[in-house]
Amino acid sequence: MQATSDIDTDQAALAVERHDCPNCDAPAGSACRTRGGKTAAKYHTPRFVLVPALREELEIPVPADRHPGRAWKQGPALAVVPAPRTERPVRIGYAR
């Protein structure tokens, strides 16, 4: 699945993982987690909307090399540590 016309799935995953997940508290450099602690199959929306090129996407799948569905473990350290965020998370919508 192509995330955008310019970014493939692996590049999208790397861009998403530059940010901590506000939904599951996965640290930068790691995939999102389920409530059971396993690696999620898709990144949580609040995380990938922080990447401007991916804001219009409906879902971003976690690449197979992150082992979705298996017990989560910390990924490798990032080569470049991102600067602390100054913007606030954006609420996309509300559902009941």
Rank of each mutant, 00 (worst) to 15 (best):
Q2L: 14
A3V: 14
S5E: 14
D6K: 13
I7T: 15
V16H: 01
R18P: 00
H19C: 02
D20G: 03
C21H: 00
C21N: 00
N23A: 15
P27A: 09
P27K: 07
S30T: 15
A31W: 03
T34Y: 09
G37E: 07
G37T: 08
K38W: 07
A40Y: 01
K42I: 10
H44E: 10
H44P: 06
T45M: 14
T45F: 12
P46L: 13
F48S: 01
F48Q: 01
F48K: 04
V49E: 07
V49N: 08
V49T: 15
V51C: 03
P52E: 07
A53I: 05
E57S: 12
E57L: 11
L58C: 06
V62L: 02
P63A: 05
D65Q: 03
D65I: 02
H67S: 11
G69V: 00
G69P: 00
R70H: 12
K73Q: 13
K73W: 06
P76F: 00
A77G: 04
V80Y: 04
P82C: 06
A83Q: 01
P84V: 08
P84G: 04
T86K: 08
T86G: 00
E87W: 05
E87Y: 02
R88G: 04
I92V: 11
I92C: 04
A95M: 13
R96D: 14
